[in-house]
Design a protein around this nucleic acid. Sequence first.
DNA 1: TAAGGAATAAAACGGTCGTTCAATTAATTC
DNA 2: GAATTAATTGAACGACCGTTTTATTCCTTA
Lengths: 203, 203
Amino acid sequence: MARTVGSDGEKTRSAIRDAATGLFARHGYDAVSIRQIAAEVGVQAAALYRYFATKEDLLFDLMQSHMDALIDSWEQQRPNDDPTARLAAFVGNHIRFHIERRHSTHVNNMELRSLSHDRLSTILRLRGAYEKELRQILRDGAETGAFVIEDVTLTAMAIIQMITGVIVWFRPDERLSVTQVTETYHQMTMRLVGAQEWESQHV
Amino acid sequence: MARTVGSDGEKTRSAIRDAATGLFARHGYDAVSIRQIAAEVGVQAAALYRYFATKEDLLFDLMQSHMDALIDSWEQQRPNDDPTARLAAFVGNHIRFHIERRHSTHVNNMELRSLSHDRLSTILRLRGAYEKELRQILRDGAETGAFVIEDVTLTAMAIIQMITGVIVWFRPDERLSVTQVTETYHQMTMRLVGAQEWESQHV
DNA sequence: TAAGGAATAAAACGGTCGTTCAATTAATTC
DNA sequence: GAATTAATTGAACGACCGTTTTATTCCTTA
C-alpha cells in the first residue's frame, strides 16, 4: 500500500533533495546533471522522475521550502517588543538560519534565473513578505525615534545584503563562533540604523 | 596586414565581450551557448575561436578585465587623506563603478565556480588586493579613534557586501539617482563604523 | 590584377543533456 | 501464494553542447 511504501519513498525523496541542494550549491543548477544527482543518491537517473516531474520542479521545490522555512523560523521567534529588540531578533534569527542552511541559501540566491516566470514570481513574493517584516521594524523605529533612517527600503536592502553575506565568507570551525559573528553583526546593524542605546539583548 | 585588419578584429573582439557579458549576466555562464553569443554578434560559432581559445578563456578574460578596471578605478581616485575621507571615497567609487558595470559585476560575483583552479586563484588574488585597501582604511581609522570597529576583517566584508548589493535592486530611471543612493550608503557606512563626525565629503 | 594571408562559414565530431518507455524487480494485499 | 501495484532499471530518443576541420570569402599589398 501507499502508506508504508510511502515512508520509504519519502526517505528517497529527501535524499534527492539533500543531494541536489549540495550539488546545486557547489556547481550551479545548470552544471549539475540529473545523472549526477541520481549517482549521489545511489540510484539511476530515471528513478528521480517518480519524485519530481522535471529538473526545474526539483529546483523550485528546494527554493520554496527554503523560503517557507525562513519565514516560519522568523514567525516562531518574532517578539512583540520595541523596534530595537525586534531588529536584534531579526538579525540574530537571519544569521543563524542562513549559517545553518548555507547550501540552500546559496541555491536561493543564485538560481532565481533558472526558474520559469511564474515560479520566479512565487519565490519573489515570499522574499518580499520576509523583507516587509524588516521594513516594518525600521519604520516603527524611525517613528519612535529609536532609529535614524534616511530611506526605509534602501536601509532594509543594505541590512539584508550585509547579514546574508555572512555565508559568503563564514566557515564553521574558524576563528569566530556563530555567537561571536552574530554579536558583531548585531552591533554593526544597530550603529547602521543609528540606534542610540540598546540593552545587550544578544539573541 | 595585421595592423589595419587588427583594428577590425579588435572591434569584433569587443563585440564578443559585450555580448558575452550581457548573456552571462542574464542567463548564467552554463546556460549560454557559444552559438548564442555568436548569433548576438552576428557571426558563426566557429568565428569566436579566432578570438578566444575556449569558452572558459572568454569568461576569464571578462572577469580579469573587470577586476583590473575596478582596482584601476580606485587607484586613480584614492585620496591621501584621513581615514574618514578615504572611506567616503572608497564607498563612492565602489558604488559608482558597480552601478556602471552591473553586468560584469554580476558575472564576477556569480561565475567564480565556473573557473579552473588556477584562474580562480588569480581572480581571488585581485579581489583580495582590493579588499585589503578597505581593511587598511578601517585599521587606520580604528587606530586614530575615528572609527569604532570590533573586527576589521568582518567589518570590511560587511561593508563590501552592503555596497555591492546595490546592483541587486538598483535600476536607473527609478525614484533614486545614483548620487542619492551613494549619499545614503555613505551615511549608513559612516554610522556602521561608528564615525562620530564627518564633513559632507560627498564624493 | 595576381598572390597571400586573415577572417569567416559550413559541416561534422564525439559527448552529454533532460526525458521517456518498455521491461523487470520488489513489496504489498487478498 | 497468486495477483496487483509500486519502484527501479537499462536502453533509447532527439536535441544541443564545445570544439575542430575544411573550404570559402574578403582584404591588403605588391
